[in-house]
C-alpha cells in the first residue's frame, strides 16, 4: 500500500504493508534513526514519538493508522520552544548515561510539559511511567523536567 504521512513537517511517501510499524518506517525507510527500538512491545518507551503532539509508541503504531496525524520525532522536537527547553535542560543537568532511552524520555517529557506546564511529582510519575531507563537516570530526568518547566515560566 501507498501512504503519505507527515513527518517533522515534511510529507513522506512510502510504499509498504499497512501493518508495518511506524518505527520501521522512520528508521529503515525515511532514515530517521534518532528514534530507538527498545522492546518492540510498548513496554519501554524508547520509541516514543509524537502524533499531533501526543506521545505514542512508534513500535506499536501500524503505518496504516497514522492517516493525517502529524508525526514529530526526536530530530525535530527541538524546533518547538518547549522541546528546545527540554533538550537544554537535559544538557544542563547531564541527564543521559548510556543515552539509549533518552530520545523517548525527551519526547514524553516534552508532551507532558505541553499539556501540563507546571507538573507535580505525581504528574511526572504518571506521564513518564512508560519510559524505562536501565541506567536509572530517573532522578535526573525528574530534575530536568522541573528545570525545563521553570525555564518555560521565565
Amino acid at each position: 500500500m501507498h501512504y503519505t504521512i507527515e513527518i517533522n513537517g515534511a510529507q513522506q511517501s512510502v510504499d509498504i504493508d499497512g501493518e508495518t510499524p511506524l518505527l520501521w518506517v522512520l528508521r529503515d525507510v525515511v532514515d530517521l534513526k534518532g528514534t530507538k527500538f527498545g522492546c518492540g512491545a510498548a513496554q519501554c518507551g524508547a520509541c516514543t514519538v509524537h502524533m499531533d503532539g501526543h506521545p505514542i509508541r512508534a513500535c506499536q503504531t501500524p503505518i496504516a493508522s497514522v492517516g493525517n496525524g502529524r508525526i514529530t520525532t526526536i530530530e525535530a522536537v527541538g524546533e518547538s520552544r518547549l522541546g528546545k527547553l527540554v533538550q537544554e535542560a537535559w544538557i544542563e543537568l547531564d541527564v543521559p548515561q548510556c543515552g539509549y532511552c533518552q530520545a523517548g524520555q525527551i519526547m514524553s517529557a516534552t508532551a507532558l510539559l505541553t499539556r501540563t506546564p507546571n507538573p507535580t511529582d505525581h504528574d511526572i510519575n504518571e506521564a513518564m511511567n512508560g519510559n524505562l531507563c536501565r541506567c536509572a537516570t530517573y532522578t535526573r530526568i525528574r530534575a530536568a523536567i522541573k528545570h525545563a518547566a521553570e525555564a518555560g515560566r521565565a
Binding site: 510498548a42 509508541r57 503504531t61 493508522s65 512508560g130
Partner: peptide
C-alpha cells in the same frame, strides 16, 4: 483515567479507537 494515560493510551489512543484492524 490516569492509569489509562500512562499504561494504555500510547497504543489504544486517547479516543480508544487504537489502530484497527491491527490493534
Amino acid at each position: 483515567a490516569a492509569l489509562y494515560v500512562s499504561a494504555c493510551q500510547t497504543c489504544h489512543r486517547a479516543n480508544g479507537a487504537a489502530a484497527p484492524p491491527y490493534v
